[in-house]
C-alpha cells in the first residue's frame, strides 16, 4: 500500500490537461459578491452613515461655516412639543391603516385560498397584486379624482340619494388612511395568502368533521395558522406608512402633516438637514425596533 502511494505520488501532476487546479473558491465568491455589495455600500450604507453624522451637526454645512457638533436635534421632541403631536398623528394613521389592511387583507386571502381554485385563483391573485407594483404616486393621485368635491364619489352618491349633497372628504385624515389602505392592502393579501396556502386541507376537514362551524374554523384555525403572514404583512405595512409623505401631502392637504412631511420639509423647504437627519434617524430607530421585535416571525414569513 505504502509503496503504491509513493509511486502514485510520483505520477501526480501528469499530462491530463483537465487536471488544472480550479480557482480557489473564496476568490470566485468574492468576485461574485463584490459588485453588489460595493454598490449597496455606496448607495445605502455610506449614505445612512453620513446622515447619522449630519444629525449631530448644528447646521447644514454650507460654505466655510465651521462645523459644530451638537445633540440638540435629538432634543427636538422636547424643545418643539408640536412634533410630539405630529408623531402621534403618524402613529394613529399607521395604526388604522395597518388594522384595516389586516382585517380586509386577511379575509381576502381566506376567500382567495378557500373560495377559488386553479386558473381563477391565479388570475385573481395577479389582479389583486398588480396595483401594488404600479406607481404609488399615481394611485394616490387617482383618489383625488374620486374624493374631491363633485368628484366620482359625489357623482355616485348624487345618483342614489340626490338630496344629500357633497360627502367629499378629500383633505382629511380619513382620506389619507383610505389612500394608504389602498396602497398596502395587496401586500397584506399576499403575505396572508402565502401563510394560508401552506395549510393542509385535511386540517380544515378534520375541524369540520369535529363539528366546527365556519366561523370557528376561521377564528380558531385559519387565523392562528396565518398569524406569521398577518404579522409580517402588518410590519411591512406599518413601517412604510409611518414614513410616508406623499399620501398625507396629496390626500391630507393642510391636515396631512406627519413625520414624513416634516422630514421632507427639512430637506426641500427649510434646508435644516441636520434636523431632518435626526428626525429620520429617530424614525429609523422606531423602524428597527419594530423589525427586531418581529424578526423571528418576519424570517419565517418572508422565506415561506
Amino acid at each position: 500500500m505504502r509503496s503504491d502511494a509513493i509511486l502514485n505520488d510520483a505520477a501526480r501532476g501528469s499530462s491530463d490537461p483537465r487536471q488544472r487546479r480550479p480557482i480557489p473558491a473564496w476568490v470566485a465568491t468574492t468576485a461574485l459578491l463584490l459588485p453588489t455589495y460595493g454598490w449597496l455600500t455606496l448607495a445605502v450604507l455610506l449614505p445612512l452613515l453620513t446622515m447619522f453624522v449630519f444629525s449631530f451637526m448644528s447646521a447644514t454645512p454650507m460654505g466655510k461655516t465651521p462645523i459644530v457638533f451638537t445633540l440638540k436635534h435629538y432634543r427636538a421632541f422636547i424643545d418643539q412639543p408640536y412634533l410630539i403631536n405630529i408623531a402621534w398623528t403618524s402613529l394613529v394613521i399607521g395604526f388604522w391603516t395597518t388594522l384595516l389592511c389586516a382585517v380586509f387583507g386577511f379575509l381576502a386571502a381566506v376567500a382567495l385560498a378557500r373560495a377559488t381554485v386553479g386558473r381563477m385563483r391565479e388570475t385573481l391573485l395577479v389582479l389583486l397584486l398588480l396595483p401594488f407594483w404600479t406607481n404609488g404616486l399615481v394611485r394616490v393621485f387617482s383618489w383625488t379624482m374620486v374624493l374631491r368635491e363633485n368628484g366620482f364619489l359625489d357623482g355616485v352618491v348624487d345618483m342614489v340619494l340626490p338630496d344629500i349633497g357633497s360627502i367629499s372628504f378629500l383633505y382629511t385624515r380619513y382620506a389619507v388612511v383610505l389612500g394608504l389602505v389602498h396602497g398596502y392592502l395587496p401586500y397584506m393579501i399576499l403575505t396572508c395568502y402565502i401563510a394560508l396556502s401552506t395549510i393542509d386541507d385535511a386540517i380544515i376537514e378534520a375541524a369540520a368533521s369535529l363539528g366546527a362551524r365556519w366561523w370557528t374554523i376561521l377564528l380558531r384555525i385559519l387565523l392562528p395558522l396565518a398569524a406569521p403572514g398577518l404579522i409580517s404583512g402588518a410590519v411591512l405595512t406599518f413601517v412604510p406608512v409611518i414614513g410616508s409623505f406623499m399620501e398625507p401631502r396629496i390626500l391630507g392637504g393642510k391636515v396631512g402633516v406627519t413625520m414624513g412631511t416634516v422630514i421632507e420639509d427639512q430637506f426641500t423647504q427649510a434646508f435644516n438637514w441636520p434636523l431632518g437627519a435626526a428626525l429620520s434617524f429617530t424614525l429609523l430607530a422606531v423602524v428597527l425596533a419594530i423589525f427586531a421585535t418581529f424578526s423571528g416571525v418576519l424570517r419565517r414569513g418572508t422565506t415561506a
Partner: peptide
C-alpha cells in the same frame, strides 16, 4: 489519504477529470 482509480492517484484530480 489517497484515492486512486485504476492505479492512478486522483486525490487532486477534480471530478471532471
Amino acid at each position: 489519504g489517497i484515492v486512486s482509480i485504476g492505479g492512478r492517484d486522483v486525490t487532486h484530480v477534480p471530478v471532471w477529470g
